[in-house]
Write a protein that binds this DNA or RNA. Sequence first.
DNA 1: TCATATAACTCTTATAGAAGACTTAGAGTT
DNA 2: AACTCTAAGTCTTCTATAAGAGTTATATGA
Lengths: 270, 270
Amino acid sequence: MADARGNRPPARPAPRPTVRRRDGAPAGTGEVTPGGGPLYRQVKEQLVREIAQGRYPVTDPLPSEQKLAARFGVAQGTVRRALDDLVRDNLVIRHQGRGTFVHAHGPERDRFHFFHLVAADGERRLPASRVLSVTRRRANQDEALALEIPPQDRIVEIRRVRDLMARSAILETIVVPDALFPDLGSLPKTQVPNTLYQLYQDRFGVIIHRAVEKITAQAAGRDDVTYLGLDRGAPLLLIERIAQTLDGTPVELRSSRCDTRHLAYFSDIL
Amino acid sequence: MADARGNRPPARPAPRPTVRRRDGAPAGTGEVTPGGGPLYRQVKEQLVREIAQGRYPVTDPLPSEQKLAARFGVAQGTVRRALDDLVRDNLVIRHQGRGTFVHAHGPERDRFHFFHLVAADGERRLPASRVLSVTRRRANQDEALALEIPPQDRIVEIRRVRDLMARSAILETIVVPDALFPDLGSLPKTQVPNTLYQLYQDRFGVIIHRAVEKITAQAAGRDDVTYLGLDRGAPLLLIERIAQTLDGTPVELRSSRCDTRHLAYFSDIL
DNA sequence: TCATATAACTCTTATAGAAGACTTAGAGTT
DNA sequence: AACTCTAAGTCTTCTATAAGAGTTATATGA
């Protein structure tokens, strides 16, 4: 009982209320309500929702910590905690003195974060792309399932060859729902940029946040022989990627067939 | 000038001192000295050093935040910041009410964090292992280079076949420096456990913290035919891993040759 | 065994100064 | 008049501290 904090009843009957607020706070647009749990997490989840629905364009900053704190009716430190989490999750990026921004795609991020194939010399460069075709067609069974769209829904398919070190090294097929990317199917081959995720973001407001890759070894087939110059039956690396947005909706299917004679997939386990 | 913070001279001459301490702190065993930079980072780095040198066994907790704060002569919140970073880096794990522990290896962690091969049915189980041989020999050029040991130094080589879903699916060769793992080379085949990293940790005090994997497609050779039942020349996945301790020393080379007909490597990009 | 107490850890709030980035006003030059 | 440079001011995030309230695991005693 020599505790400076005084006597704290140990078996406190009152459970923590689902939502608490700073006492005198006017509680702006009461948005810290869902679920319960720690305040900072409620704030975080609300911010994720708002970012997911495209409320903050990547060009200008989120409201300052002060303003967010006032809006949510919590202390600035709590907002800070939430924002720190968002930084950890690669959702936002902060610049001291400038503000906090939704983490946008660009050559930098795409090369280091979403592209794991590295040339034999160890250089990490983003390969040049040669688009073979851009097609609009109906999804097959597997595609509809993976993209969580109704069967027979329209999709856009992009096929391209990517060069690394002046060699055709990757044969890539990309499938996205037509509904999410209007006009993409009508884009001329020459207009398809190298960094697709940046295109998704800038032109269609779709931000790729997460991707799952399934990697297997395959024997080279007809197309691989044609486009990659492999011998028939030669081993190649097949990477099947499903890319998702912030809210977990799958929006892109990508299969990359790689000649790994001068190339390797790198994975860092931290 | 109506700022409540008052007039702050903009061109302040005094730079931040390299090391600061709370004013009256006796500064225990002055250990927050290196480098400079934010206090919380200095604390973090010192803790990493201490963990790396095995100062805290995985069985019992680190000193409480209070004690660490007192020892380093900083506020508890600062220690907390440092510990949060260590949690993020997978170095320690915290249990409310129990304490903070060095994050130990075990079946759980090894299965989900360090083992990325998943059976076709999606189940993530750790495969059973059948050890073929345990050998002590001299390192070749490549091995010495990768392990950063003198050429011709002794190493221990373990070869094993791992079964997934009652199929021989992975042919694995593991190479570690003999110096770091005394007696490992004399271990009978039947005594080699399935989760090696746990063995490294419990028996030799070596904690694997990070691994880099290089993945390519290869054609099946003689051993692959023998042990995996593949046809000669069939495609297989080759995973070459270098595992490191906390301080970045490479301590294990592991090459896994996988039959990916009923198996795939999964990579999650967050 | 069950209740209680204690000692950790976790969460929230508050405050204050440091440091970086941008804007604006004004002096000076072209 | 138009332009350039600099200083001051303001806004932002970053760092550090402190303290109280809440939660959880464990030891203690009836």
